[in-house]
């Protein structure tokens, strides 16, 4: 019987977020952390690990990506560069 799959996230150094690096099979959370250490941090790639069961992740559907992400495209007024301010106005 196959052991469950876990997604592995590594914090490369303090001050940065954990980032997805791959996955491992393990029977339980502790074994998953130990396997992740051996597989993904053999060269000081991290200072912290997260593991989460792959089947616990809900991902967005690529088929819905336009309805999810395209509405942001025509909202340029959300960016500071949308606003024209005269050159003589400083610190803004």
């Amino acid at each position: 019987m196959e052991m469950p799959l876990w997604e592995v996230f590594v914090r490369s150094k303090h001050g940065l977020s954990h980032r997805h690096v791959g996955s491992v099979h393990a029977a339980d959370p502790r074994m998953a952390v130990e396997a992740a250490r051996d597989v993904y941090t053999r060269r000081m790639e991290g200072v912290s690990l997260w593991v989460v069961r792959s089947d616990e992740i809900t991902a967005s559907d690529p088929g819905e990506s336009s309805s999810l992400f395209e509405p942001a495209e025509d909202k340029v007024y959300r960016h500071p560069t949308f606003y024209v301010v005269p050159d003589n106005i400083k610190h803004i």
Partner: peptide, 8 residues
């Protein structure tokens, strides 16, 4: 990486 969902 999301294998379970992919099977479906």
């Amino acid at each position: 990486m999301y294998t379970v969902e992919l099977t479906k």
